[in-house]
Computed example of a mutant assay.
Amino acid sequence: MGAVMRILRYLKVTPGKGLMFCKYGHTDVEGYTDADWAGSVTDRRSMSRYFTFVGGNLVTWMSKKQKVVSRSSAEAEYRGMAQGVCKLLWLRRLLRDLGFGP
């Protein structure tokens, strides 16, 4: 319900923008993650990004500096992937609770 309220607040604040969803004939949940190792020149922390799509439509995205300094690019990617998978699992459970298919 919190996600629904955020969407409604967004629509209220930006009446000219709106949200665009297209029907692609499937309801697949997809996620993509990325991280850049030591991207911040001041503290050498990495940035994590993830995007989730439902039925080919972008529904969540995030770009955030990681809380710790990664020792390698693989560690930075793993941390970013862990955050993205958590969001995917949350989204899948939310959709199931709302009555959408598998």
Rank of each mutant, 00 (worst) to 15 (best):
R71Y: 09
T52C: 10
R6H: 13
F21K: 05
K67N: 13
D43Q: 03
L58K: 00
T27P: 02
D34N: 14
D34K: 04
C22W: 11
L89K: 13
G101A: 14
F53E: 01
V85N: 04
L89D: 02
W37A: 12
T42G: 06
V59K: 07
L19N: 09
K87W: 01
A82R: 06
M20Q: 07
T14S: 14
V4M: 14
L98Q: 08
R71D: 09
Y32S: 12
M81A: 13
R44W: 07
W61G: 09
V69K: 01
L88Q: 14
G80R: 01
L88I: 14
Y78Q: 01
V69T: 11
S63E: 12
F21S: 00
W90P: 02
G31I: 11
S63K: 07
A35D: 05
M20S: 12
T42L: 10
V68C: 05
P102Q: 13
Y24Q: 04
A38T: 09
G99L: 04
E77Y: 02
R9E: 09
W37H: 12
S63I: 08
F53T: 13
N57D: 12
G18E: 00
L88N: 07
Y24P: 02
Q66H: 01
K87F: 00
Q66N: 06
C86D: 00
G99Q: 10
Y24T: 06
L88S: 10
R44L: 14
S72Y: 06
L19C: 11
K23E: 09
R9P: 01
V69A: 05
F100Q: 04
M47S: 11
